[in-house]
Design a protein around this nucleic acid. Sequence first.
DNA 1: CGGGCGATTGATTGCCTTCAAACGTGGTGG
DNA 2: CCACCACGTTTGAAGGCAATCAATCGCCCG
Lengths: 224, 224
Amino acid sequence: MRSQPQKTTQPTCAAAQDSIDFGPSLTLRGVRMRFERNEEIFGESEAAEYVYRVVSGAVRTMRFSSDGRRQILGFHLPGDVFGWELGDTHTLSAEAVSAADVIMVRRSLVEKASAQDLQAAHAVLALISQSLNTARDHAVVLGRKGAGERVAAFLLQLADRFVSRTELDLPMSRADIADYLGLTIETVSRAFSEMERQCAIALPSSRHVVVRNHAALEDLQVAA
Amino acid sequence: MRSQPQKTTQPTCAAAQDSIDFGPSLTLRGVRMRFERNEEIFGESEAAEYVYRVVSGAVRTMRFSSDGRRQILGFHLPGDVFGWELGDTHTLSAEAVSAADVIMVRRSLVEKASAQDLQAAHAVLALISQSLNTARDHAVVLGRKGAGERVAAFLLQLADRFVSRTELDLPMSRADIADYLGLTIETVSRAFSEMERQCAIALPSSRHVVVRNHAALEDLQVAA
DNA sequence: CGGGCGATTGATTGCCTTCAAACGTGGTGG
DNA sequence: CCACCACGTTTGAAGGCAATCAATCGCCCG
């Protein structure tokens, strides 16, 4: 299933671009690669050879329950780092949601840097710590929110990450959103339609969301 | 709501006991305290002054959704470290599930140690990394499993942590289990009853579970 | 113009929640 | 020592919300 990733032909800009910035004191060089839509970046239990940063596009990380059901753990947008592991194998899988440019830095470089430089070690710690916090928020959504609330929370979360907080171009399908929120495609779709009916959002197309009433979304997120 | 915690009167054993072992190269001294059942250990948005290790009893960490619904993020048993934060305030709350002895180490000590010693920094990283992995597993359970599967997964998870893998003394109530698994008390109770009916477990008392058929539980965990 | 895929909408089912009541046990006070 | 109360748990009945099953729609691409 793992298709041959290939380096971009054009050497896009300077060397400084092809690196991951872990913080004020840790910038590591890597290689830029392009992954096509739905292409696997790495799989669970594969050797964790690289750490990744999204340059453009979007990436999903996920885990599968023993009988194959998929849980998406997070979406990663430009700037996000993913794929870091403490051990030497990946504990989750990653795929490109849309065509995505990604910078890959050898894990050994990160290890070496953080084994020599305390600031580097702290930068990695901050990264993981942030991931943990996000994962905990996600647990609250999955464990204690209804369908409408989950979708509202998802949209608000995305809105906070886009430059324009009202115009969202969703890179992911309804199926992705469903597997992220612990719902089905149909339920997600109905939630979108219902929000449109209530004029909280507009849906010029299925992948383009306009937030019409931010406050209404925040209400939905709490009780819907 | 925060009652006055009080140090245990008997100085139980040596100084080495009242410390947290983060790994081969980081052991920090602290103070031992006892918390009674349901006593708050720290609250969300309080200053994160200490890092904690469970000595005896059990602790729950949790977060609340904006309208007050409780999601338990984890149960912490003897040996577990909890309450670590990157920033200077807690991002979750902790309470004693049962009466619990806990060792508290000043966070500033951990900070100082991991800012001076690379092995110490790595020990903290390993700790957080493990928490992240656990949180991700939890997300799979919350997002993609049915009620019976959740309870089975919960029991197997606990069984792995007890000395006796077949005799479990649950320190937590059905309400705690429900809030951990994203279910209601009644649904959890029904799941237990159903497992007993299928002879996967026995319930001599509501808090004492005997695993009769480990394999059957593993099956339930996948499809029930 | 036709095919395929993702999204939407509708109808129905089923699981979990909600509401309600009874049970059991541990603790307290008479 | 026993009666009683409180609280956690279990069980039952009913309802609701999301899943499932099924059909249609819309759009992109060939």
